[in-house]
Design a protein around this nucleic acid. Structure first.
Lengths: 222, 222
DNA sequence: TCTTGATCGTTGCAGATGCAACAGACAATT
DNA sequence: AATTGTCTGTTGCATCTGCAACGATCAAGA
């Protein structure tokens, strides 16, 4: 129970209530190893997953085989087909385990149904879930922010600026590999590397491995 | 009151409760004319807006003046800074009225606070809001779906396919002008027109004004 | 009626980007 | 030690795309 109480989803819910709640929402658990598929968004998934431990990514693969990372999920994060993502015409969307992870599943319908017992924690849970979903909108809109740039250079700078802004520092570690970054900003990796080199040469950013530091030239366009 | 009861946000709430609720959430109203700014996401907006009538768009303008439509809001739709969108470093994000609109504002904090009176409609409202926010995730993820394509051609086809899929027909009207479409898929308008012509020449789509019909060549890549 | 602004449609051109292909570094596994 | 797989870094090349610029059309307003 203690491990649940620490989750954002269960914030403000008394530990002694958690047990009842888990039963109420038909909780079940799952464990996955790196690279393993966690769940596929094929219309069958009616649950909300909460990541207790590990990391995962939400990925789309289209008919041509091109892969796009739609979202990253870390500990405490939620995912689920019911939370808004859908797949289209032959594209498949699914969650893949990155680092070994444990997942708690709750039944969506039971969360959203009005509870006959009028349990206090129920509305708290809904509010918490609301906050988590709002965070998702945030990260999606950041993604749109980046993707809507017209050139690789702008995409990179926009992405870096957002990262720096979020952490409040000019220097930070990329949360994933350069290969994955190319994927995230939806461009060709080699073209991205080329642009990255130019940015480095012009002193706009310093990049060593996954460490990124925004250079002084940053204010150029201000 | 009747006009509110029809809103998705108030679904399942008894008409006689709406009055009390509006007071409870510090409701206020606003009217805007076409082109007028409705609200700016500058950190000051602590309310949720519900569109009673008309249409609006959520727009970002960056330092360089480039404009991007982040979202469309129709009657019954909700918007608000608290719902996840934020602006970064000099970019400004705001809602602009498209067609003359009337807006109902509710105070976000009051919605999310646990209600001392434990009014039944309160949790219903939260659940409804949840559904609306989930819809937003849906539309954002569709946007990402389109933007993450690597070429204008793929962006267009992806957008068309999503539109067709949503309405269940191969033929539909674009919800906005071609200029706005270029904006939505974040490409140069002239380049988009060029690609549109090629698609037409190859028989992949028929386009007359805003009317689009997916051609038989559609299955090409299947 | 004339003007204004928005949308649509087109073109030339330079530079950016996607693609294919390759090689080295590194870690994990056999 | 050999192997496998992933990540990084690079290059040549054909093509795509962004940009600037122009003209036509249309609707709304003065």
């Amino acid at each position: 129970m203690e491990e649940y109480a620490a989750l954002p989803l269960f914030a403000g819910i008394r530990e002694e209530d958690v047990g009842a709640m888990l039963a109420c929402f038909r909780a079940r658990r799952g464990s996955y190893r790196s690279g393993e598929p966690v769940c596929e968004y094929d219309g069958s998934c009616r649950e909300v997953g909460v990541l207790l431990e590990g990391t995962a990514r939400l990925v789309r693969i289209d008919r041509a085989g091109a892969q796009t990372i739609l979202e990253h999920v870390g500990p405490g994060g939620v995912f689920g087909e019911v939370l808004g993502f859908t797949s289209y015409y032959g594209d498949s969307v699914f969650v893949v385990c990155e680092e070994e992870c444990r997942v708690l599943y709750l039944d969506y319908a039971h969360i959203m149904q009005r509870c006959q017992k009028a349990c206090g924690y129920h509305s708290t849970l809904v509010r918490n879930m609301f906050a988590l979903v709002t965070d998702q909108i945030c990260s999606l809109s950041r993604r749109v922010e980046v993707l809507s740039r017209r050139s690789i250079r702008e995409k990179l700078m926009s992405y870096f600026a957002i990262q720096a802004g979020e952490r409040g520092r000019e220097e930070f570690l990329l949360p994933f590999s350069l290969t994955a970054l190319a994927d995230y900003i939806s461009t060709d990796r080699s073209a991205m590397m080329r642009e990255l080199r130019r940015l480095r040469e012009e002193g706009l950013v310093e990049i060593t491995g996954r460490r990124v530091r925004l250079g002084p030239g940053d204010k150029a366009e201000a």
